[in-house]
Design a protein around this nucleic acid. Structure first.
Length: 272
DNA sequence: CGTATCCTGACC
DNA sequence: GGTCAGGATACG
């Protein structure tokens, strides 16, 4: 459950569960999730008091009273499962943090691609992140500069966390749809009007996803995972392509990359 | 820059 | 049995 809004919700739940508590024990159930951390470092968490949890991009930072930071990243499929330590573990439990009030935080992740790291006191991890969409520093000027260095298509650039922190594959596609920009448009060829549209689209897409918790059933995306369906804006078909090994969904009708220099500039034939 | 890789499950 | 998966990074 990645992407900024989902991670922020997870952070809020985690913070409510752990702030002010102390750790009784941490158990790593799948080696991959703590592959960069020694067993000793894990064991040394026992007894530590927890100040609270912050977030940057998709990273969650659990601040300990002794100055250390436990750094969690869900990657593709991680989530927190918070319950009582006496409950049976969920099927995909990968790590467990037992707290001093008998509650428990379980890192629940079928693919076990999530990561846990521990940072020493005073060593703030360099996460290599650009501004969050909500940051005043996330400006058209910032995007112009970031895109100017990139020769490739815009969509993969939007997934670069140094450009904008927290944007993932779904909301990158949704943002490009909202801004009516083709995902194949070379990043550095975007003009100012497109940059303005794209910046505000990203902000709005993230804001909206942050506000409304998703409802099952109703398709909550405009293009993501909607290959072959009709665009709700222009009625053309949603297509799927692969860019940098990831699926990109977009509307073949209303997302124009102004330079797709094809012969026919004839308008697409009527919509049904 | 694109591609492979970590890992496991769901789905065709 | 093959393909794909909401991420990030190491590598060619």
């Amino acid at each position: 459950m990645p992407e900024l809004p989902e991670v922020e919700r997870a952070r809020v739940r985690l913070d409510a569960a752990v702030a002010g508590r102390s750790i009784v024990a941490v158990n790593v159930l799948h080696r991959n999730v703590a592959r960069r951390v020694s067993a000793r470092a894990i064991a040394s968490l026992a007894g530590a008091g927890i100040v609270g949890v912050t977030r940057r991009g998709k990273h969650q930072l659990i601040r300990l009273q002794d100055g250390r930071t436990v750094h969690a990243h869900f990657r593709m499929t991680g989530d927190w499962h918070i319950d009582r330590a006496s409950e049976p573990l969920p099927r995909f439990a990968r790590a467990v943090i037992v707290l001093d009030d008998g509650s428990r935080v379980v890192l629940d992740d079928p693919r076990a691609l999530s990561t846990l790291d521990i940072h020493a006191p005073g060593s703030e991890p360099d996460l290599g992140l650009g501004p969050e969409p909500s940051d005043p520093a996330f400006t058209v000027g910032w995007l112009r500069e970031a895109f100017g260095k990139r020769r490739g298509p815009i969509k993969p650039v939007l997934l670069d966390q140094r450009v904008v922190a927290g944007l993932g594959n779904i909301y990158a596609a949704e943002s490009l749809w909202m801004a009516r920009i083709s995902p194949a448009t070379p990043a550095r060829s975007l003009d100012d009007r497109e940059l303005v549209r794209l910046r505000s689209a990203i902000v709005r897409v993230i804001e909206r996803a942050s506000g409304s918790r998703y409802r099952e059933g109703s398709s909550r995306f405009s293009v993501y995972d909607r290959e072959g369906e009709r665009c709700r804006r222009c009625g053309a078909k949603i297509k799927r392509i692969v860019q940098s090994g990831r699926s990109t969904y977009y509307c073949s009708g209303c997302q124009r990359g102004q330079r797709r220099a094809r012969v026919s500039r004839a308008p697409r034939s009527a919509r049904p």
